[in-house]
Design a protein around this nucleic acid. Sequence first.
DNA 1: CTACGAACCTGCCTGC
DNA 2: TGCAGGCAGGTTCGTA
Length: 270
Amino acid sequence: MPELPEVETTRRGLAPHVVGQHITQLKVRESRLRWPVPADLPALVAGQPVLSLTRRAKYLLFQLPHGYLLSHLGMSGSWRVLTEPAPLRTHDHLVITMSNACELRYHDPRRFGCLLWTTEPDEHALLRVLGPEPLAEQFDGDYLFQRSRGKSAPIKTFLMDNHVVVGVGNIYAQEALFLAGIRPGIAAGRVTRARYQALAEIIRKVLSEAIQQGGTTLRDFVNSDGEPGYFAQQLRVYGREGLPCHICQTPIKSLKHANRTTSYCPQCQQ
DNA sequence: CTACGAACCTGCCTGC
DNA sequence: TGCAGGCAGGTTCGTA
């Protein structure tokens, strides 16, 4: 599961094969995802053209003439494009055949992802509540500063809250806080405006760089061609507990915030 | 409002 | 070898 860069990498990989083509068939091999795949979905999309493929937070939106397919990858989901026949694998839950003969397969061992239908994405319950995109103009240090006043939650938990800003998951929250030199456990409401300004810029930079490099190589992340991403080599703290900090050699420490592992450098992050 | 745990699942790794 | 336990990229929901 991907974070925002992995979802954006997926979108860019799928778009050329999908946009402007028609959906010949949607086959639901396993409908028990995070929420059941609607039973009428195959009939709803068959024969329809895909007008665009966009992303909001970690959701992919396939725009059809009369509505949108809404896809979330959860923790372990991936979409792949196949241009030649290949045997189905375990956990290939969805298969979309396109008019250009290529096939999209949704693979998701843990089934935390979803595929839903909406005619009004902006008003959909899952999307309506989301904060701004981290790469949008309205996301900046002043915004974070204002939103954080009075909050006692750790800044790391605050950053991962989708109501505040979307797309900052467990990996990139840790990386951004390391690069900003901020201790992840500090109360969000006690961080200064200046530090939020630096942090906001770092978040944008970290996410943009990860997108440019095709996402992070995670346990089972592959892009739409089935290839791993290349950002992993640059991870500074995520998954590095006990290893020396790249800056000061102090061993990276690890603890839990809201049940999610957080790694940080006790020397560089204060 | 906040904060925390549980829930939704499988796979993989570690240690006994 | 086997098995139990813990952990993993996300997000919603219920209870305190």
